[in-house]
């Protein structure tokens, strides 16, 4: 990984970002031979900063990577995980692809919509939940699968999905971790996960160390 020094103009573009995000941005730029490759991780960082991919966020990413705002937007608009509208605190994603469908995933989605009061594809007015159906998430022996802020739970029943929604509404943890939710609301798993880990997400952005939202739980 190479050390990256930002020019005054580049520093100015991310002046509003917090110190962690500015450091992560430099780190990410050092991981690729070509700055343009950092567009995807930088978009995630901009989501951490702004809650979703905003026009200002895309402009900042453009300055760091040498792209125009339109070029950044063409990338952001291609991928479903770059959300271009404000999200709730918890993004609840229900897989309804073929293997989950065969195990009753549509009923799980209905339970989540019903209990949260938020229809598929929307965000509730109180800003607590966003609900979406998603395509296959690669845990098909543990179908049906639900993600909260991209942390996965396998073997979810409609009843457990309702419990999950209530648990989140009643406060939920600061850090959403897949292992804790699996223990509380999960069932059949695709494979043995071996050991519980406290790492997880505190925002609807995938919690991946160097440029995600991973934090150690207390």
């Amino acid at each position: 990984m190479k050390e990256v020094t930002l020019s005054p103009a580049e520093l100015e573009a991310i002046r509003d970002w917090n110190e962690d995000s500015r450091r992560l941005a430099r780190e990410v730029l050092g991981k690729y031979p070509d700055r343009r490759s950092a567009v995807m991780p930088l978009l995630y960082i901009s989501m951490i900063e702004n809650g979703y991919v905003t026009a200002a966020g895309m402009k900042s990413v453009g300055v760091l990577t040498g792209l125009t705002g339109a070029q950044v937007q063409s990338v952001a608009s291609f991928y479903t995980m770059y959300k271009r509208e404000a999200l709730g605190d918890y993004l609840v994603s229900v897989c309804t692809s073929i293997s989950c469908f065969l195990q009753g995933a549509d009923d799980v989605l209905t339970a989540v919509e019903d209990e949260s009061g938020v229809p598929d594809g929307e965000t509730g007015e109180d800003g607590k939940f966003s609900v979406e159906h998603i395509e296959c998430n690669g845990a098909c022996a543990g179908a049906p699968v639900v993600l909260v802020n991209y942390e996965m739970i396998e073997g979810v029943t409609p009843d457990k999905a309702r419990e999950l929604v209530n648990w989140l509404r009643d406060g939920g943890p600061d850090v959403i971790s897949t292992d804790e939710m699996q223990r509380l609301f999960g069932g059949q798993r695709s494979f043995d996960w071996g050991v519980e880990e406290p790492e997880g997400a505190f925002l609807p952005v995938p919690a991946f160390g160097p440029y995600g939202s991973a934090k150690e739980a207390e």
Partner: peptide
């Protein structure tokens, strides 16, 4: 992108 745990 939906594999944050494997990525970690």
């Amino acid at each position: 992108g939906e594999y944050p745990k494997p990525a970690r």
